[in-house]
Design a protein around this nucleic acid. Sequence first.
DNA 1: GTCTATACAACGATAGAC
DNA 2: GTCTATCGTTGTATAGAC
Lengths: 183, 183
Amino acid sequence: MDTRERLVESTRELLWERGYVGTSPKAIQERSGVGQGSMYHHFAGKTDLALAAIQRTAADLRAAAAADLDGPGSPADRVMAYLRRSREVLRGCPVGRMTQDPDVATDRRLRQPLADTFEWLRGRLAAVLAPALPDGVPAEAIAATILATLQGGYVLARAAGDTEPFDRAIDGIQELLTRTMGG
Amino acid sequence: MDTRERLVESTRELLWERGYVGTSPKAIQERSGVGQGSMYHHFAGKTDLALAAIQRTAADLRAAAAADLDGPGSPADRVMAYLRRSREVLRGCPVGRMTQDPDVATDRRLRQPLADTFEWLRGRLAAVLAPALPDGVPAEAIAATILATLQGGYVLARAAGDTEPFDRAIDGIQELLTRTMGG
DNA sequence: GTCTATACAACGATAGAC
DNA sequence: GTCTATCGTTGTATAGAC
């Protein structure tokens, strides 16, 4: 792995663990094993590094979701596969967690990948759901609810220090969806 | 408002806006108009101040929820009143946002009020829902899903920089609940 | 490209006078 | 109780040699 790569990967880890405000250039240097001068040669500063890291994390998340949503089975199967995919719940969502960072939320460039990712996810989910929903049930709203359940599940689990609330929230949305979609 | 009170209120505001990691003692002093020596006379340090602020914010949130959930109307009415209550969506949930703060999540004392609040909310919601749900639908899971939808709605809205995803998520859960509970 | 040195503000607190 | 002074560390770079 080259130097640039090590910097981006270390930044991704630290942003996931500690957020933007909680991540220092020094910590990135230590984790990556890259020196001060070298880091500032490859990136203009903390913001630039964070942008690269966030963009890659967002792209990874979209790819992982696409693998489930474009997989085999009925629309309902694919949505459930997405919902039930194994996740590192107590670490939180690496994309969603950035929305709580004041310096990310207020920086257009840093926030853009987050906005794009969730908008894309909602569209994909809605497209999969639409043919399985009864007439008159708005797919876009159900898609938003599913995404929110996941993101909120992470929040509840981290508050509890336990994955149980996340799992219950998924159980609940699955129950509601099953009763609405049928089967 | 006395000195202690001004400190706690200023800390609450700052924790909501910037989180724990992003809030400095100095910023608290400036916002409250309380001096350095005075602040450290009343509180042992940043953690102690944050604990008082988080406890109060959590208590406020429970009181506001109780007002809706114990209000007039059918179980469904009360749940919808809670879901539809006016919120400052783009500011995020003052309790939920703390779960993303690494120094809060790893500190038992700071995390406890968050855990207690969501556990209490889930229990109250489940108690209201239970008589309105068809047999075999687990109230605890539906309650977790409702809470998660709210918390996740905040996340999606902040990512978008717009309240629309929050509103859609609420629309979706309302639709699903209505179809399951009946009209 | 990478290294070391330097800079200067902010962080989070403690000390001691009043 | 409140004030000012001081402290050691970290944050976030920039400068210039190699």
